[in-house]
């Protein structure tokens, strides 16, 4: 920085009135083919960045991010699973030496040693040599840790039926329809259909009956003859009752629109 007498400032500020040239440094004296980060290197690097971005966006478009059903704390049958990069820690807790009475091993000692060693690596591996063969212990430890993490992750992920999980946990839009249980068709629905299509027509074993696109005649036919994997004769009653049932389903759909 410039110091001393004869310096000129902008007004009463401490900004020097003398303009400094706004030009890059000259790297021609640097070793090898050194170049300036700005603008030379960045002009090439943004191209590599764009390729990365295109690949990333393709991944995003090809695989919409998953969303399961809204959390239901009473769902005792749900098998919890963390995101993939925590699977190795989760799997570790399944080994006998890391669970039950030895749980401290699994949650503190082993991860603590591994991550502690990672944090302190520069002080554990103090020799001056940087090449891998000059520090066999450090490199061997890292390879051991890497293999364990990959193995544990594989063990954990291979035992999960991902498709079945996704299928069983598809999101269901929240229903905002009020079911009119006084409707004459409701009692018939309750007897014939509710066990598969749910108390709010939201679908359980069978699909949701809200937001469907059938004429009353088609609905009546489905109720008696079945469709797809739905067996026939779910409804057995008088024609009048069938009319009431169809009218009930239509009325819920009208309300949901």
């Amino acid at each position: 920085m410039h110091k001393g007498k004869g310096m000129k400032f902008v007004g009463d500020s401490r900004i020097s009135a003398e303009r400094k040239p706004n030009t890059s440094k000259d790297y021609s004296e640097y070793p090898g083919r050194t170049e300036a980060f700005w603008p030379n290197f960045l002009l090439k690097e943004w191209l590599a960045g764009s390729v990365f971005l295109v690949g990333f966006l393709s991944l995003t478009l090809a695989h919409p991010s998953p969303l399961e059903k809204m959390a239901d704390p009473t769902d005792a049958a749900y098998i919890p699973l963390p995101d993939w990069y925590f699977l190795f820690l989760y799997e570790l807790l399944k080994y006998e030496f890391a669970s039950g009475t030895y749980i401290i091993m699994g949650i503190l000692v082993l991860p603590g040693l591994a991550f502690g060693a990672l944090l302190l690596a520069p002080f554990l591996d103090k020799g001056p040599g940087r090449r891998p063969h000059q520090r066999p212990v450090a490199v061997a430890m890292m390879l051991l840790a890497l293999t364990s993490v990959i193995w544990l992750t594989y063990e954990s992920a291979a035992n999960v039926n991902w498709e079945q999980r996704a299928e069983a946990n598809k999101p269901v839009p929240a229903s905002n329809v009020e079911i009119d249980t006084e409707h004459p068709g409701y009692a018939i629905y309750e007897n014939s259909c509710l066990s598969c299509h749910g108390g709010e027509l939201e679908g359980t074993a069978g699909p949701s009956l809200v937001g469907i696109d059938y004429t009353p005649e088609e609905l009546a036919t489905i109720a008696t003859d079945g469709i797809g994997s739905m067996p026939p004769d779910q409804f057995t009653g008088s024609d009048e009752e069938l009319d009431q049932l169809v009218e009930f389903i239509i009325s819920v759909n009208e309300e949901a629109k």
């Binding site: 900004i15 083919r33 050194t34 170049e35 980060f37 700005w38 030379n40």
Partner: peptide, 18 residues
């Protein structure tokens, strides 16, 4: 007014070794 050139040069000027 605020002498940004030195700040900008600090950010922009660094070498990328071969």
């Amino acid at each position: 007014r605020i002498d940004v050139t030195p700040i900008w040069r600090d950010i922009a000027d660094h070498e990328v070794p071969e």
